[in-house]
Amino acid sequence: MEILTQIFSLETLSSTLRMATPLAIAAIGGLYSERSGIINIALEGLMLAGAFIAVVVSYFTGIPWLGLLGALVFGGLFAMIHAVVSIKYHADQVVSGVAINMLAAGGTVFMLNIIFNTSGTSESVNALPYWGPFKPTVYIGLLVVFIAHYVLFKTPFGLRVRSVGEHPHAADSVGIDVEKIRYICVGISGILAGLAGAHLSLGVLDSFREGMTAGRGFIALAAMIFGKWTPFGALGASLLFGFSQAVQIRLQGLGIPTEFVQMIPYIFTIIALAGVIGKSTPPTAIGEPFEKGKR
């Protein structure tokens, strides 16, 4: 009983929300991209780059809000590489995503060496202030989820995004610019992944550490899939995965190794994909380059 009250304490619940924030934001980013038909396994790298740029801008300007803005802008620009390579040059989107992740991992440490003269942790910079119990990014994250739901399901733009992801040729035939929609969506995914990264480096911490996203981009991907490619689903999955991160230390006290708790998001996602608890199905046209006039 005591352990249960510990697990569901106010402290764990608020830490769940903190842990879930970067997952939910990046998952929504992935959602825009994938709903438009572009696979985005680059969330990890985009987050890492965002986390880094946020710290660098805050370091040079002393203003964390500019760091946050920098992360958004750079995340969007960085994602454009994925967009151009995937959309214009029809590259395999998974391969492009792998390359983005590699470029981010190598590039951030390279620049860490150049700017901070270290391969480990950057200097401490001005971090985002608290707004009540949480950092601003937590509230922004929740807002992002609601906006995504509204945009994707209640606006003409959202309808276009979904139609481009399901039936690009049908969308094209009614005059929708398939490629333009996809560029916008991949750009949004980069902006949001950058925001998620800034939450880690300027919200949770006040510095950049090598590889500090530590797989959160892939947990976000898992949350997006587990949430069946819907904003509220992704939020729910992020909260669940965030909760499992928040309680793993306490569960260790019960004799459950942290490693097993760490596996939970990934095992859940495989089970969801297998259709054991209601099959998770990706958008139909996902991963296919769009070639006008073909088919």
Binding site: V85, H90, A91, A99, L103
Partner: peptide, 11 residues
């Protein structure tokens, strides 16, 4: 990473 981009986007 750049090599991968070029090989993947051989267009």
């Amino acid at each position: 990473a750049i090599i991968i981009f070029f090989v993947a986007a051989d267009l």
